[in-house]
Amino acid sequence: MYFTHADEVWAEHPTLRALALTVGGLTSARTDEGQLAELAERIDRRQNQMAEAEMPEIAAWREAFSRMGLKPTQYRCASEALLRRYRKDKSLPRFHPVVDYLNHVSMAYAIPIAVFDTARIGAGITVRPATGAESYETFQGETENPGPGEIVFGDPDGHAHSRRWTFRQSARSAVSKESEAALIVVEAHHVTASGDLAEMETELKTGLAALGVTLGSSTLVSESHRLFEF
C-alpha cells in the first residue's frame, strides 16, 4: 500500500511537510488517561498563551486554504476545529483510544492528524485535486461528490476520504472498534514544520506503544521524498 501527494499539490504548496506512519493491533488498544491528562495540560498552556489564529501552524494552514480559494474562517483545518471546540468545552467526545489520543496530540501541536482504517482505502491514498467523480461518505450517511480541483485524500477506487484537504474526513475510512490497522498522516506548512514533525514522530511512537497497539513503519515526507510504501 502507499501514501503520497500529487505533483499539483507540491507545485501549489512547496512548503508542505508530512509524517506518515502505520499501526496495527487496534482492537487491543486501551485508553491511557494519564497520557490524555498530560496532553490536556499542554493544550491548556498553549491556549492560554494565544488564540488559534495566532498559532504559526494554524496560520500556515489558513494561508494554504486561501491559496485553494477557500475562506479560512469558513473552512478550518482539523486541528483548528478541534482546538476551538476544546477551548469552548474543555473536553472532546470519546471515539476510540487511538483516535482520542491522536486528537489530543493534534491539539497539543496545532497540526492536523488524519487516521484511516487501512482496510477501507483500497491500494492507498494520494492527496490530489479531485476529478469531481469521487464519492465521499458523510457521517450522516449521505454521499457527496467533491468539486473538480478540490484537494482530497483519494484512493484508486474512486473514493474521497476527505473534503477540502484537512477540513473534514470521510466516514468510510474512519477508525472504529472493528478496525485492525491504520494509516496515520500528519501535515504542516509552517516554517519549523520539518523539526516539529520529527519531534511528533518520536512522541507518537512512544504514545501509541503505550496504548498497546503495534507500531509499523514511518517516514517523514517532503518534496524530495514523496512516497510512503507500507
Results as ranks from 00 to 15, higher is better:
Leu227Pro: 06
Val152Ser: 02
Val175Glu: 00
His5Glu: 13
Glu137Tyr: 15
Ala81Asp: 12
Lys88Phe: 15
His225Ala: 13
Gln169Phe: 06
Asp100Glu: 11
Val105Glu: 08
Pro97Ala: 06
Arg17Asp: 02
Ser218Arg: 07
Ala20Leu: 04
Glu229Pro: 11
Val99Arg: 04
Ser218Met: 02
Thr202Lys: 10
Ser173Met: 06
Ala64Pro: 00
Ile113Phe: 11
Gly158Thr: 05
Leu197Trp: 14
Gly25Ala: 14
Glu134Thr: 14
Leu208Arg: 05
Val98Gly: 08
Val191Glu: 15
Asp196Ala: 14
Ala51Pro: 00
Ala209Lys: 02
Glu38Ile: 01
Ser217Lys: 15
Ser222Asp: 13
Tyr75Met: 12
Leu92Gln: 04
Tyr75Cys: 14
Phe153Gly: 01
Glu144Phe: 05
Arg17His: 14
Asn48Asp: 07
Arg128Cys: 13
Thr219Tyr: 02
Gly24Tyr: 07
Thr27Ala: 12
Asp89Tyr: 12
Pro56Val: 04
Arg172Tyr: 14
Leu39His: 02
Leu36Asp: 00
Ala123Asp: 14
Leu227Ala: 09
Leu204Gly: 03
Tyr86Lys: 08
Tyr75Gln: 11
Glu203Leu: 11
Gly216Lys: 02
Ala119Trp: 09
Ser217Ile: 06
Asn48Ile: 00
Ala171Gln: 08
Phe230Met: 00
Gly122Phe: 12
Met1Val: 03
Glu203Thr: 13
Glu178Lys: 13
Thr73Arg: 15
Gly24Gln: 09
Val213Met: 00
Leu211His: 01
Ala18Arg: 07
Phe3Ser: 02
Leu21Ala: 03
Tyr136Asn: 07
Ala18Tyr: 08
Met50Lys: 09
Gln47Leu: 13
Pro156Arg: 01
Ala130Glu: 06
Leu19Cys: 05
Thr4Phe: 04
Pro93Met: 08
Ile111Pro: 07
Ser79Gln: 08
Arg168Trp: 07
Lys205Gly: 15
Ser162Tyr: 04
Ala110Gln: 10
Thr202Tyr: 11
Thr126Trp: 06
His96Met: 06
Asn145Gln: 06
Ala119Arg: 09
Ser28Met: 05
Phe3Tyr: 07
Leu102Gly: 09
Ser162Trp: 07
Asp196Asn: 07
Gly147Glu: 13
Thr31Tyr: 05
Ala81Leu: 14
Glu8Asn: 07
Val152Cys: 08
Glu187His: 02
Arg45Glu: 03
Tyr2Met: 09
Val115Lys: 12
Glu180Cys: 10
Leu36Thr: 01
Leu83Ile: 14
Leu39Ala: 02
Arg42Ile: 01
Pro56Phe: 07
Val115Ile: 12
Ala133Glu: 12
Glu52Asp: 01
Leu16Thr: 08
Ser91Cys: 03
Val185Ala: 13
Phe167Asn: 04
Ala133Asn: 13
Leu26Thr: 05
Ile111Glu: 09
Arg67Cys: 02
Val127Ile: 06
Met1Asp: 10
Ile151Phe: 05
Leu102Ile: 14
Leu92Tyr: 06
Val99Lys: 08
Leu36Asn: 00
Ser194Ile: 09
Asp7Arg: 03
Leu211Trp: 00
Ala160Asp: 04
